[in-house]
Structure formats: structure tokens, C-alpha cells
């Protein structure tokens, strides 16, 4: 009980008649990195949207950090300690890198002034440089506004934000889908940093090499159901593909497929 950070029981989501997610039982231990794989429409993103409170679930239970939770929205989830990087990035285009990194949790002084308390730009910029350097993210000038940055740089800023503030659980939905080779390597470095820091991660990815490199465990979704729960060391790419395509199903999930 104590070392399980997230558990779902019979998590189910119907969009009208479409059974997008059916009876997902899932556990994630502290410090564990898990990949979710599956074809398009297999229910991966739906699963994540239930956990982060973006959509209300049809049925089932989510137990986070030992307590059953019911998030009304992504903000609720975030305050509970679930940090998610979505495919659509939540960055403010007209603000610079450190502003975005610290948005909503600025370092301040003269706090008795309430909403008019002063920003501590110096500390925030120093921390930003430290955070970006630790994750080896390359940004030419952290005082440039986000609007002038490439997709990869934006993605790196969004991910650096989740890595800077120690959350209880990080979820990344295809973080490298739109990135070039170098930028992908940077994002993977950040993920390794999270692993070293012992922070749990759920990674949705189509990239088999990436998944094999980064995670401890692979969950395979097919047609809205979990069909396999594989330890990385006991499997290989061929095997995973077999589960994704439906050639194989683990015996304990046999009823699902």
C-alpha cells in the first residue's frame, strides 16, 4: 500500500456508445517509470484524461497517494501533485522562459502586498538557468518570449517546468512526437533526470526505442482495454508489437480481447 502512488480500479469511460476505456486496473509504484503503448484509439489518451481530471470518468476508482480522489479539473489534479505535459502546451506566448516556468508559483518579496507583491526576477532567472542547465535544454536566451521559439524549445520549456517543481507524478503524452533528433534527446535526458530523482512517470509514446531505453514497465492498451503488463527486462520490441497488434494477449487479460 505504502509504495503505490497511483492505482486505478475498473476505470471506465464511454463517449456515448463508444467504449473508449473499459475496466482498466493499473498500479504505479513510487519511483517507477511506466510506458503506455497501443495503437491510435486504443484508449491511452483517454486513460490519461481520466487520471488528470480533464474529463469525468464513467465508472471506476482512482486512488492517488493512498486516497481515493475525484478531480474536477486539471488544476485540481495539479494541486494534488499530478503534473501533466499535454500535446497542446500550456505556455503563455508573450511571456519569457522564466515567467512561464514560474507562472502561478512566482518567487516574490513583500508578500504582505497580496496580489501586488513584488516579483523576484533575479532568483527566478537564476533558478531557470540552473533548471535548464541541469536538464541540458538549450535555449538561446531565457528572456526571449515563447512566441519566437521552435516547437522543440517550447516542449523543453514545458517539460522543464514539470521537472523543476517536484511533483508526485508526472504524465507525458507523446512528448517527442513533433521533435527533431537532438530535441528528442534533450527530452529523454529530462526523463532520465526524473528517474534519478525517483519521481514516478507515465509516458505515452509510439517510439519503441525510446520506451525500451527509458522505462521499467510497459502497459499495452488495445481497443480500450489493458492487454499486457510487461517488465521491460522480460520482453523485447517484437513481443510488445505482438501485443499491440493483437497477435498475443497475456493470459490474465484474456477476457479483455
Amino acid at each position: 500500500m505504502s509504495d503505490i502512488i497511483l492505482e486505478t480500479r475498473d476505470l471506465t469511460k464511454y463517449y456515448g456508445g463508444v467504449h473508449a476505456l473499459e475496466g482498466a486496473d493499473f498500479t504505479l509504484r513510487k519511483g517507477e517509470h511506466v510506458a503506455i503503448m497501443g495503437d491510435n484509439g486504443a484508449g491511452k489518451s483517454t486513460f490519461v484524461r481520466q487520471i488528470t481530471g480533464v474529463e469525468p470518468r464513467t465508472r471506476g476508482e482512482i486512488i492517488f497517494d493512498g486516497k481515493p480522489v475525484h478531480f474536477d479539473g486539471p488544476l485540481d489534479a495539479r494541486q494534488a501533485g499530478i503534473e501533466a505535459v499535454f500535446q497542446t502546451l500550456a505556455l503563455a506566448d508573450d511571456l519569457d522562459v522564466s515567467d512561464n516556468l514560474f507562472l502561478g508559483r512566482e518567487k516574490t518579496w513583500a508578500n504582505w502586498l497580496g496580489p501586488f507583491r513584488f516579483l523576484d526576477y533575479k532568483a527566478m532567472r537564476a533558478d531557470t538557468i540552473a533548471a535548464l542547465e541541469k536538464t541540458a535544454v538549450k535555449i538561446p536566451n531565457i528572456r526571449n518570449t515563447i512566441q519566437y521559439m521552435s516547437g522543440g524549445q517550447r516542449q523543453c520549456v514545458a517539460i522543464a517546468r514539470t521537472a523543476t517543481f517536484h511533483s508526485k507524478l508526472t504524465i507525458m503524452d507523446e512528448p517527442t512526437a513533433a521533435l527533431g533528433v537532438q530535441e528528442t534527446a534533450q527530452v529523454e535526458n529530462i526523463i532520465r533526470t526524473l528517474k534519478e530523482q525517483g519521481e514516478p512517470l507515465i509516458l505515452i509514446s509510439h517510439n519503441m526505442r525510446q520506451v525500451m531505453d527509458l522505462v521499467d514497465r510497459i502497459i499495452v492498451f488495445r481497443r480500450g482495454r489493458i492487454v499486457a503488463n510487461l517488465n521491460k527486462d522480460d520482453t523485447d520490441g517484437q513481443d510488445v508489437v505482438a501485443y499491440i497488434t493483437g497477435a498475443k494477449t497475456q493470459p490474465e487479460y484474456a477476457g479483455a480481447a
Partner: peptide
């Protein structure tokens, strides 16, 4: 120089991002 100002720019720039940031 204040949180008020920063949040004003953030809301005008990307209201959803501002809300998601708490």
C-alpha cells in the same frame, strides 16, 4: 514588477495556460 502584472499578461496571452498554472 508585481505578481498582479505578470498574471495580467499571462491571462491576455493564454487564458487556459494561466488557469492551468493555478
Amino acid at each position: 514588477y508585481t505578481v498582479y502584472g505578470k498574471h495580467t499578461y499571462a491571462i491576455g496571452s493564454n487564458e487556459d495556460a494561466a488557469r492551468m498554472s493555478g
